[in-house]
Design a protein around this nucleic acid. Structure first.
Length: 886
RNA sequence: GGGGGCAUAGCUCAGCGGGAGAGCGCUUGACUCACAUUCAAGAGGCCGGUGGUUCGAAACCACCUGUCCCCACCA
């Protein structure tokens, strides 16, 4: 063995940066459109430019990188296309925050200057997340990095808006939308989070105008909105109120006259069966109001303060303050009948958590029904497949009940709506290019001040990034993309919208498969959040444990679609695995220094151990590949972990040591070197998608390497390399070895001190296997061993282990604890008898014999034989021990 | 109100029709010349409950219980 200059503990910091730079400089991430090569393409869910890498990104991008690196090695023309999202609200908020510190605000600065400022902010901080993705090892084609507001994506946005408009799928209308008072914009329905909050149901008396003694009781959760009431509605045919329909009520505190109307919307069973109508502040009331031509009185403003219309006593009050005062005033006026506790879901802004105010305003909408149809069909007929499949149902359920999408936002940072209005004649123009003057009257025009929902541009991501609306070779080669990898929290926001957009503008789904993963939770199962302060920064983890460990930890134990808890213990486990690989490789390299790769040794030159590890390696190749194909990345990683640690390191490397040390001759040493090098190289290649850095570092030191492990061919799945006979033999030897070790442990024999072991194998076949494996047994557990046929030695003087009919005797000097040994054997016997009776019952059943497959029956019969042999043997030994005490 | 996930060893989870598994933790022993971020041996489980399908169920089906999540305009 030659000394080799490698540290005993693997240090990721010393290698990760180096290799990433190497890969990037040599353009190994690059993909060039090539009609003659099979493509594999993933578009990265663009993280917000404002963002820092969090564990969710780390998981999402690790999964994408594993798939991309694997397919690239398989020979696909693999493109992973990165980019960032302009994130309207989030980015604007950051810049406004900055301005606030300077004592300014965006209005003071003006739109143009504010946008300049935001672009500058983007230039300065927008690259942070992509730098962090590089630390993670992401093998994306950075030359193609895109931004949702770059020239190309913006052109795509304008084109889509105009085409939708031309198809009559975009309209502008007054509607009640979700207004976030803090963000100062409307948000779409799915951006509202409904949280159950305790509240009250206030019962209010509204007197009849002509008969002040008579009144209707209405129930409301939001008494302050009564200032905007313009009617009271009752259900059709509700006997309690028929007398009053068409009469006029007087609104308390305000004195407004309210007609009593009839509408289907009212549920006579809820509350009092009479509902106050506030068309300007409730979406349902708005609809009812539209049907009955009710006036809309807006009493709450966009700043969430009461408006002048609320009357002088309330104008300018905060909405919650106003509620208190109204309740007090109503009570004083004798109009408050009672207050009940009543929990209800309250809408909150998903960005800033403010309570949403339903607000009447004129907004742009996309008509969804016509777009949803094809998107539903595509999922139904499997052109888009969700992994796991259950998400198809969730997606369909949403799509089938979809409502129109409010796409205008009262922000400045984003894609401005490409519509101009004439100041003079009011005509509007939808245009791909800026409009200077009114096409009808030549008057002055101005552009719509609103911008589009951020998700409007994300929805086009799979084709806008490939060059659409131009007809590019990229689009032809890479679209539809292969798979989309994303968290289940944005199926509605993003995945669904990409699907209908792709179908509408490319006539083809944007991706064939959607691989959904869950959330990364903290150790207690809570969502990682800033407010809880329980988030773990991936960059910190990369610093302390290395990117490979983080990646491996995130991939293992994660099943598709399910959440993943973040445990530092598991991270340590991944790091230990990296260290294990490092040291196994260190050992191999020490013994491969003088290795001269000659001819591949023929089967005759291979030992049992060689044939065994080659066979096990083939199984690992098959299993890893199969699991990856099914998106079971966690299982694939587990296969590699177990193969490398439990088989390659724990057994093969131990078995091969004497041969590498030259104890069996130079030719045998060369064969051992060859097999060890081959299996190690293949294992690193299999592991590379999961742990790219350490595998490259070691692979580069191996003989017969290429330029980079990234471009090494994925190990071939060669069924013929399986060797069932070798596996069966080795497993027998391993079991016997375990038996011997157990005895040694119980006897407290110091390592290297046990003299002689007798292996007694009654069957000739078994004996032959043990003879073949004798050298392994010797160097694995004890000094000397011989295999004996025939009758058992007298076991009264020996501790005994049984493995598949082989008994192992270790001569000892009366050290055995008879009580302990008796108890142990008795327990084992009880278990064996229980198993045996179960098997016998099975074999005694004619149903089983008739209907079970023959292989299963044979297996059960073999088991019966094994168990009865074991039973006999255990009984004998117990008898011997019993004799020993007397 | 509708939909979905999860319930397996002390903890976190994998397995999902024919032998109850892993990691961590725990017990015992070993600093053995790749690795103490290690090695060896071991303890620990009526696979949530009840029914059903099957020759056979931890696994498939139904219901129940507990738990988490998503959707929804009941004032």
């Amino acid at each position: 063995m030659t000394r080799i200059d490698l540290p005993k503990v693997y240090d990721p910091r010393a290698v990760e940066g180096k290799w990433y730079q190497y890969w990037e400089e040599h353009k190994y991430f690059r993909s060039v459109a090539d009609p003659n090569r099979a493509p594999f393409c993933i578009v990265m869910p663009p993280p917000n430019v404002t963002g820092q890498l969090h564990m969710g990104h780390a998981l999402d991008n690790t999964l994408q990188d594993v798939l991309t690196r694997w397919r690239r090695m398989q020979g696909y023309n693999a493109l992973w296309l990165p980019g960032t999202d302009h994130a309207g609200i989030a980015t604007q908020a950051k810049v406004e925050e900055q301005l606030a510190k300077e004592g300014a605000d965006r209005y003071a600065l003006g739109r143009e200057k504010f946008l300049e400022r935001t672009w500058a902010w983007k230039e300065q901080y927008g690259g942070r997340i992509t730098t962090q993705l590089r630390r993670l090892g992401a093998s994306c084609d950075w030359d193609r990095e895109r931004f949702t507001m770059d020239e190309g994506c913006s052109a795509a946005v304008r084109e889509v808006f105009i085409r939708l408009y031309e198809r009559g799928l975009i309209y502008r209308d007054y509607y009640i939308t979700n207004w976030c008072p803090r963000c100062g914009t409307t948000i779409s329905d799915i951006e509202v989070e409904h949280l159950d909050k305790p509240g009250h149901l206030y019962h209010l008396k509204y007197p009849v105008k002509d008969n002040p003694g008579e009144y209707i009781v209405v129930a409301t959760t939001r008494p302050e909105t009564m200032l905007g009431d313009t009617a009271v509605a009752v259900a059709p045919g509700d006997g309690r109120y028929t007398r009053l329909v068409g009469k006029v009520l007087l609104l308390p505190l305000v004195g407004r006259e309210l007609p009593v109307i009839v509408d289907e919307y009212v549920d006579p069973a809820f509350g009092t069966g009479a509902v106050k109508m506030t068309p300007a502040h409730d979406p349902n009331d708005f609809e009812v109001g539209r049907r009955h031509n009710l006036p809309r009185v807006q009493v709450i403003g966009k700043d969430a303060l009461m408006t002048a219309e609320a009357g002088p006593r309330y104008a300018g009050l905060d909405r919650w303050e106003c509620r208190k005062r109204i309740v007090k005033d109503l009570e004083a006026g004798g109009c408050l009948l009672k207050i009940e506790d009543h929990g209800h879901a309250l809408g909150h802004c998903y960005r800033c958590n403010s309570v949403i105010e339903p607000m009447l305003s004129k907004q742009w909408f996309v008509k969804m029904k016509p777009l949803a149809g094809p998107a539903i069909q595509a999922a139904r007929d499997g052109r888009v497949q969700f992994v796991p499949e259950r998400f198809t149902k969730i997606y369909l359920n949403w799509m089938e009940n979809i409502r129109d999408w409010c796409i205008s936002r009262q922000l400045w940072w984003g894609h401005r709506i490409p519509v101009w209005y004439c100041e003079d004649c009011g005509e509007s123009f939808v245009s791909r290019t800026p409009v200077d003057s009114c096409g009808r009257c030549g008057g002055k025009v101005y552009q719509d001040p609103d911008v589009l929902d951020t998700w409007f541009s994300s929805a086009l991501w799979p084709f806008s990034t490939l060059g659409w609306p131009e007809k590019t070779i990229d689009l032809a080669c890479y679209y539809p993309t292969s798979v989309l990898v994303t968290g289940r929290d944005i199926i509605f926001f993003w995945v669904a919208r990409m699907i209908f957009s792709g179908l509408a503008f490319m006539d083809e789904v944007p991706f064939r498969q959607v691989f959904i993963h869950g959330l990364v939770l903290d150790a207690l199962g809570r969502k990682m959040s800033k407010s809880l302060g329980n988030g773990v920064d991936p960059i910190d983890v990369i610093e302390s444990h290395g990117a490979d460990s983080l990646r491996f930890m995130l991939v293992t134990g994660n099943t598709p679609g399910n959440d993943l808890r973040f445990h530092f213990e598991r991270l340590d486990g991944a790091r230990n695995f990296a260290n294990k690989i490092w040291n196994a490789s260190r050992f191999a390299l020490m013994n491969l220094q003088d290795y001269d790769p000659g001819e591949t040794p023929g089967p005759d030159h291979l030992t049992l151990a060689d044939r065994w590890i080659l066979s096990r390696y083939q199984t690992a190749v098959t299993d890893t590949t199969r699991f990856l194909e099914n998106y079971e990345l966690g299982e694939a990683a587990r296969v590699l972990y177990e193969f490398i640690w439990n088989e390659l390191c724990d057994w093969y490397i131990e078995l091969v040591k004497p041969r590498l040390y030259g104890k069996t001759g130079p030719e045998d040493r060369r064969v051992a070197q060859e097999i060890l090098a081959r299996v190690l190289k293949g294992s690193l290649e299999l592991l590379h998608p999961f742990m790219p850095f350490i595998t490259e570092e070691i692979w580069q030191r191996l003989p017969r390497r290429g330029l980079t492990i990234m471009r090494a061919p994925w190990p071939e799945d060669d069924e013929s390399a399986r060797d069932a006979a070798a596996e069966a033999k080795m497993s027998l030897i391993m079991e016997v070895t375990r038996g011997v070790r157990q005895i040694r442990g119980e006897m407290n024999v110091p390592p290297g001190k046990v003299a002689t072991v007798l292996l007694v194998a009654p069957e000739e076949e078994t004996r032959a296997v043990l003879e073949e494996g004798l050298s392994y047994l010797q160097n694995l557990s004890f000094g000397e061993a011989t295999v004996h046929a025939g009758l058992r030695e007298k076991p009264g003087q020996a501790a005994v282990a049984v493995a598949r009919g082989v008994e192992v005797y270790v001569p000892l000097k009366g050290l055995i604890d008879i009580d302990k040994e008796t108890a142990r054997l008795a327990k084992e016997l009880a278990a064996a008898e229980k198993d045996l009776s179960r098997v016998l019952k099975k074999l005694g059943s004619s149903d089983f014999l008739d209907k079970a497959p023959p292989a299963v029956v044979e297996k059960e019969q073999a088991k019966q034989a094994e168990l009865s042999a074991k039973q006999t043997s255990l009984k004998e030994r117990l008898a011997v021990l019993g004799a020993g005490t007397s």
